[in-house]
């Protein structure tokens, strides 16, 4: 019952989203409704010129958002250390 309500709220909320594939969605515009430049279009325009690399996802991942990726690598490393510690055998 609760789950049906949850699904219903989500479907209702989706009617306020932009339709799938709409090129004019706020996410895809060059200038957002608030008048500031949108990151996605900026990356598309600048990535090849800045990093000489065709794959834009790679440029965003390892260049514009390198700090994010560093933190994420640390999260994976922390999970590895965590599993190691949780499952360490006690020296009896």
């Amino acid at each position: 019952m609760l789950l049906a309500a949850f699904f219903g709220v989500l479907v209702w909320a989706s009617s306020h989203l932009a339709p799938v594939g709409d090129p004019d969605a706020p996410l895809h515009r060059e200038i957002s409704p608030a008048g500031t430049p949108v990151a996605g279009a900026h990356y598309i325009h600048e990535s090849y010129r800045d990093a000489h690399t065709e794959n834009m996802v790679t440029v965003v991942l390892a260049d514009y958002r390198a700090f994010d990726t560093l933190g994420e690598t640390v999260v994976v490393f922390a999970a590895g250390v965590g599993v190691f510690l949780v499952l360490a055998r006690r020296k009896a």
Binding site: R49, D50, H52, V59, A62, D63, T73, V76, G80
Partner: peptide, 23 residues
């Protein structure tokens, strides 16, 4: 400058690949 970005990205990708594989 853009070629420096290129090689730095390659080093970063190799480091990330090594870390993900090992962990």
């Amino acid at each position: 400058l853009d070629d420096r970005h290129y090689w730095a990205i390659l080093v970063i990708e190799l480091a990330v690949g090594l870390a993900v594989m090992a962990i």
